[in-house]
Design a protein around this nucleic acid. Structure first.
Lengths: 191, 191
DNA sequence: CTGTAAAATGACTGATTAGTCATTTGTGTT
DNA sequence: AACACAAATGACTAATCAGTCATTTTACAG
C-alpha cells in the first residue's frame, strides 16, 4: 500500500472545496468529489452522511481557519487602532492567500438553503472581534454605532478589498488597496 | 379564455426569482419553475433556450431595475454629498423593498460558474456612479483613492446595511442603520 | 499465521434532471 | 367558415443525481 499522505476525510474536503468554488454546490456531484479525492463513492458517505453535511462540515473547518488567522499577533499590538488594522490585514491576507476558501465562504453565506442557524453559529467565532469593538466603543476609540453595524461594515469591507485584489489583473498594488481600504473604514469608524 | 394579467415570460421570471432565492439555482428545477408560473414545461424553453439563459436574463432584468432605482431623483440634489447620500438611500431602500431581487443578486454574484463577462457587462450599468465618483475625486470632494475601490466600498457598504436591516428582527431602526451606514462610508471617503 | 473489526469499495437503485418535439390550441385574416 | 401561423402543451428521453449495501480489503491483536 502506498504511503497515505493525508487521510481520506481531508482528501474529500479538499476536493469538495475545489469543486464547489469551480461549479457551486449543486453543480458538483458527490461522485465527482469522490473521484477527485481518489476514494470510492461510498467512502464519502462513511465520513459525511449527506452532501449537506459535507458542505456544512467544510464551512465550519474553513471558518475555523479564518477565525484563527484573524486573531494572529493581536496581543502584540499596543493601540486599539493597531489592533484593528492588524485584524484587517489578517483578514485580507487570508482571503488573498486562501482564494478557494474565501470564495467558498462567499458562496455559502449567499446560498439560501443554508439557514440562519449556521450563520448565527458562526458569528460566535467572532466573539473576539465583538469584544474588541465593544471595548473600542466604551473607551471612545470609535463612534457609538451599533456593534453589529460596526462589525459588519468592517468585515464586509475587508471582503470587498479581497475581491478587488483578486479581480485586478495587475497585482501591482495589493498592499495599496489593503491600506486604502483600511483608511476608509478607520476614518469612518474612528472618533 | 381568462384575461391574461401578465405574459408568460414575466410569469416565468417571477416564479424563477422566487424559487431561486428560496432554493438556489441548481436546487430549482425548470419543471418547478414552469409549474409555479402556470405554464407547461415546454413553454419555458420557448422563451429561454436553456436554464442558464433564464438565469442570465433574470439577472439582467433585475440589475436593470436596481440601476434605474439607484439613479432616481439625483438631479434634484445640489451638493455632491447629497447626491451620494441619495444614491445610498436609493440602493438600501431598493434592497429592503425588493428582498428577493436583492438576495438573487447576491447569489448570482457569488456563484462561480457565472463568468467575469457578465460581471463586467453589469458594471457598465454603473457608469453613472463611476462618473459621479470620478467627478467627486477631481473636484476634491472625496479623497483620491482608486475609483474602483471607492465604488466597491460604497456599493458593498450599502449591501451590508441592507443585510443588517433584513436580518434584524426588530425593524425598529431601519432608518437609523441606513443613516449610520452612510455616515461611516461618507466619513471614510470625504476629504 | 489466524481471527476480527473497522474502513473502503463500487455496482446498483429509484428519483430527478434539463431539454425535445409531435401535436393541439388560440388568434387574426379573408 | 376556412385558412395560416405562432404560441402553448406535456408525454417523453437520456443523462445524472444522492445515497445504499453486500462484499472485499486493510490493520492489528493474539
Amino acid at each position: 500500500m502506498k504511503e497515505q499522505v493525508k487521510d481520506k476525510r481531508t482528501a474529500i474536503l479538499e476536493a469538495a472545496l475545489k469543486l464547489f468554488t469551480e461549479r457551486g454546490f449543486h453543480g458538483t456531484s458527490t461522485a465527482q468529489i469522490s473521484k477527485d479525492a481518489g476514494v470510492a463513492t461510498g467512502t464519502l458517505f462513511n465520513y459525511f452522511p449527506t452532501k449537506e453535511d459535507l458542505i456544512n462540515s467544510l464551512y465550519f473547518e474553513v471558518k475555523g481557519e479564518l477565525s484563527r488567522s484573524m486573531g494572529k499577533e493581536i496581543e502584540e499590538q499596543s493601540t486599539f487602532k493597531d489592533k484593528l488594522e492588524k485584524i484587517w490585514s489578517n483578514l485580507v491576507k487570508w482571503g488573498v492567500e486562501n482564494q478557494e476558501e474565501f470564495l467558498f465562504v462567499g458562496q455559502f453565506c449567499n446560498s439560501p438553503y443554508i439557514s440562519k442557524f449556521t450563520r448565527d453559529e458562526v458569528m460566535k467565532e467572532y466573539i473576539f472581534l465583538h469584544n474588541l469593538v465593544d471595548e473600542g466603543i466604551r473607551e471612545g476609540e470609535i463612534r457609538d454605532f451599533s456593534a453589529e453595524l460596526t462589525i459588519a461594515m468592517f468585515y464586509q469591507g475587508s471582503r470587498t478589498v479581497v475581491n478587488l485584489i483578486l479581480d485586478s489583473d495587475s497585482s501591482l498594488d495589493e498592499n495599496k488597496i489593503l491600506e486604502d481600504g483600511f483608511q476608509i473604514i478607520w476614518r469612518g469608524l474612528a472618533k
